[in-house]
Design a protein around this nucleic acid. Structure first.
Lengths: 342, 342
DNA sequence: AATGGTACCGATACCGGTATCGATACCAAT
DNA sequence: ATTGGTATCGATACCGGTATCGGTACCATT
């Protein structure tokens, strides 16, 4: 079985040295037109494809950029990945994805593994890694961008939104819309620290207004439409007088809406439903729900650009983006810049 | 700035040769207990992490398994990826993902790039790559598993379902449920060849029953809830007497359902809606829609296992899995094995 | 004491590229 | 003819590991 052709074979066929062949194929200088043509012809006939592993070993770095996200079952991260692809367009970088499943041990192992491939940079979700992981990232010697969240202390650069402020802003918006008996339905708060921050901000803003959550239902399982539906059913059976429910995200909120539709409740008249993320799906729903539209694509794009632009050992900036709130029956508007608590 | 410690430095600190240090850290034989301890201690104090690039160059292969999917905005592929993670658990393999955006040039570039990293195997979506890409895969010298589809000619192994049969089966199921005036709404058929195969099978089964689609609406854009909703609105405005619509997938179908809810149509009484995939979301909908539940997780798992088990240069099997059809108000049942057309 | 076997270790040669720097050829300027 | 400069090329030395194979020690046999 014919082994993969190597640069040496291409060079031999072209009648030049390995070095000249290497230069010709990379468009580096110092190669005559005739030599270049011969090398390219030889590479063509042999079907030569370069070996990145060898190049990486020689060049001491790769064109890989490691991307670590907690999950892909939430479409949000898929859109972040799309943004990353956009951000590195024609920079020659190549993203490599890893999924942690919201588990910090998995995350640490994944990062270690990625670092052993000498990536050109790392994009990591969230700011709340354990200390050992933070140390790993700091020592790595590659640019690190943490995404989604800015409420905390980044290892290097970060780009995202303030979830604390997002929760507080939603609380104020719902109060301003006249809602007073507000409940909460959430999932996975022990692992999804950003959802927890939103809830904290939401609660704080309610307290500032002299009120509080009437009731809440939580599950330790990952968020899903199904659990949103179930938890809403039990919450409403105990507290039928709620006029608003805030959910940990849109998936849960949509599940809540589906329960209300099945139960014949008037949404948003009788009960307002508020989620988080601003999924495309939300715009197509037959009835309006409130949500916070987050710039997911933009987050990915900016993060990737930061990596692409990072000269080695340059420290990166903190980029804060602003989400906007949408309430039912209302054209999207810009979010008023509420006070940031953190 | 202190450079990354190398094996040579570890060996020096431990007072042994590079080779002994290498053996000690890999648990290869021929190392005394005392030497092993010294090396491990040295590695510990230096914070040594191996360099996969160097190992890969030396060992002529990697633990990487390249996975190419068309999109992640469809949750389906996220679930396939989860299945892949399951399938390679504790095999030491590491998946690397690439997204083609349903573009065959991007796909070819991606595959070329992945191959230049000498992966241990490749998992590619679909069977309908252009000839040049097929040639690339065949020559690659690594095990290739094509997933999702089995209607065609695999390069090596494949695991998936027959989309042609799935479409035909749904047509028969809808006819058996008494539907006669059937329309179709689809997206992206030029790129999503599997959706096109389902439609072909669907049409053929209708023809076998002596009937045909009443009307259809197509878009070249990727499938989405929003376009499902819009296309349904226009289709029904021209053909208000339809009693069933088949969609290219569940996302489109859910959009259709949302239109019907807004328009006050009785679903499924007046109009039955049929999608494809069996998304979790479908089970939580307030009204029932028909769908074909596909074994996405299983497809990913099996594909990964095939790669993990593939001795070099072993040819792989074709694995055909069966989806099942669910109709509204009906408990899930196994799909009767309809005749396969291809 | 000579022989053989086992356990452990290290020098050396790669893997497939690229950086570096010194050669060579050729033409223009002096 | 000599000098200097430019364009082109190739020999060599790595990059950081691992495979291979030939030592060396040391103990058990004969």
């Amino acid at each position: 079985m014919p082994r993969k052709p190597t640069l040496a074979q291409v060079a031999a066929l072209a009648g030049v040295s390995k070095m000249t062949a290497s230069r010709a194929l990379r468009d580096a200088g110092d190669v005559s037109a005739s030599a270049r043509d011969k090398v390219q012809a030889a590479a063509q006939t042999l079907g030569y494809v370069g070996d990145r592993v060898a190049t990486a070993l020689s060049a001491k770095t790769t064109n890989l950029i490691g991307v670590v996200v907690p999950s892909l079952s939430n479409i949000v991260f898929a859109q972040v990945l799309a943004g990353i692809s956009d951000g590195i367009a024609d920079s020659g970088l190549q993203p490599v994805f890893g999924i942690t499943g919201y588990d910090s041990d998995t995350e640490a192992a994944l990062l270690r593994d990625m670092l052993s491939w000498r990536p050109a940079g790392l994009i990591v979700t969230g700011l709340d890694q354990p200390d050992a992981t933070r140390a790993l990232l700091r020592q790595a010697g590659v640019p690190v961008v943490q995404i989604m969240d800015i409420d905390g202390d980044p290892v290097d650069g970060c780009v995202g939104i303030s979830h604390d402020a997002a929760g507080a802003d939603m609380a104020r918006a719902l109060l301003a819309a006249g809602r007073r008996r507000i409940g909460y339905v959430g999932a996975h708060l022990a692992h999804d620290t950003r959802a927890a921050k939103r809830l904290a901000g939401f609660r704080a803003a309610l307290a500032d207004a002299g009120t509080a959550l009437v009731a809440s239902r939580l599950t330790g399982a990952p968020s899903s439409v199904a659990s949103g539906r179930d938890l809403t059913a039990t919450l409403l059976s105990h507290h039928p007088d709620l006029d608003c429910i805030y959910y940990s995200n849109d998936d849960m909120a949509i599940g809540g809406l589906f329960h209300c539709q099945s139960a014949g409740l008037d949404v948003p008249g009788q009960l307002m439903i508020a989620g988080f993320n601003g999924l495309d799906l939300v715009e197509s729903l037959p009835v309006g729900i409130a949500t916070t539209v987050t710039p997911r694509h933009e987050i990915g794009r900016r993060a990737a650009q930061m990596i692409a632009a990072a000269a080695p050992a340059v420290s990166l900036a903190r980029v804060s983006l602003t989400p906007r709130i949408v309430l039912p029956g209302q054209t999207p508007r810009n979010r008023p810049l509420g006070g940031t608590r953190s």
